[in-house]
Design a protein around this nucleic acid. Structure first.
Lengths: 135, 135
DNA sequence: TGACATTGCAACGTCTGTCGTAGTACATCT
DNA sequence: AGATGTACTACGACAGACGTTGCAATGTCA
């Protein structure tokens, strides 16, 4: 069973939380359940990760805390700055995906000759850099 | 200009390095140039990040160091364990992508009514969890 | 009624990958 | 001779994630 390591998801926990808060204010436990169900159990955010994300994002002005009137929960709502940050993270994700996927071998796509071609491509690009860009 | 934050790419620097070493042994400077040219300058790995990745991956048995005979460079080659680790990282990437993209708003896809529907979907799933999974 | 699970949160310390800064040494170019 | 490029190494700081613990209210089931 493949597991998502914390290093990989790092930097996107905030984005996930903000995604949920974009629709409606919520609180810790509900958000964690939402993340779990939305990913069909593939990703379960740790409690400490979640609550420390709240503290951090409140400090950064991305979310605001308020108390529920009929319960003892601490609710959070997203701010305009939070929406802006979320949008930027979405753009960043597209770029990250593009970059990382250049280094990912899709299953069934690799043959020996293909690998050799890949290597040649890399060298070609490197040589171009040496000549043109003076890296 | 969007920049890729280190938190986001964290956990994939090793994968990028291993991708290059899968084709042929290489050394620090060449690898960093390869990463830059392969991503068209969109991602430039920091020297310290690169060399600390070498140390870590050698300790983990994913790569092996050897000296170039005609130069003073330290070359690295990938091991079988390194290839296995790389393959696992590729599988993990597919899963990570699937998970993260559930929380990413694609441009032009969002309307007010759609957002409300999203919210309803989340609540439906949450309620199902409450009843079935006893989260 | 009593035991146990769930809900909801806070505090504390640790770990790890990244990165800023700095330094060394040799080569090449102008 | 000085600037720039190549090829590393060492050190320390930082930040996000997470393990652990604790605690209090509520729900559930026997």
């Amino acid at each position: 069973m493949i597991e998502i390591s914390s290093d990989v998801i790092r930097g996107y926990n905030d984005t996930m939380i903000l995604y949920i808060l974009r629709n409606a204010p919520s609180y810790g436990y509900e958000i964690s359940k939402n993340i779990k169900s939305m990913t069909e159990g593939k990703y379960i955010i740790k409690e400490t990760t979640l609550y420390s994300a709240f503290t951090r994002m409140e400090k950064n002005g991305f979310i605001e805390a308020f108390s529920g009137e009929e319960d003892r929960r601490t609710y959070y709502r997203i701010t305009d700055a939070g929406r802006k940050f979320y949008d930027e993270k979405c753009d960043e994700w597209e770029l990250t995906k593009e970059v990382v996927e250049k280094f990912i071998a899709k299953k069934g796509e690799i043959s020996d000759s293909t690998e050799e071609n890949d290597q040649n491509d890399q060298n070609d690009q490197k040589d171009q850099n040496d000549q043109n860009e003076k890296v």
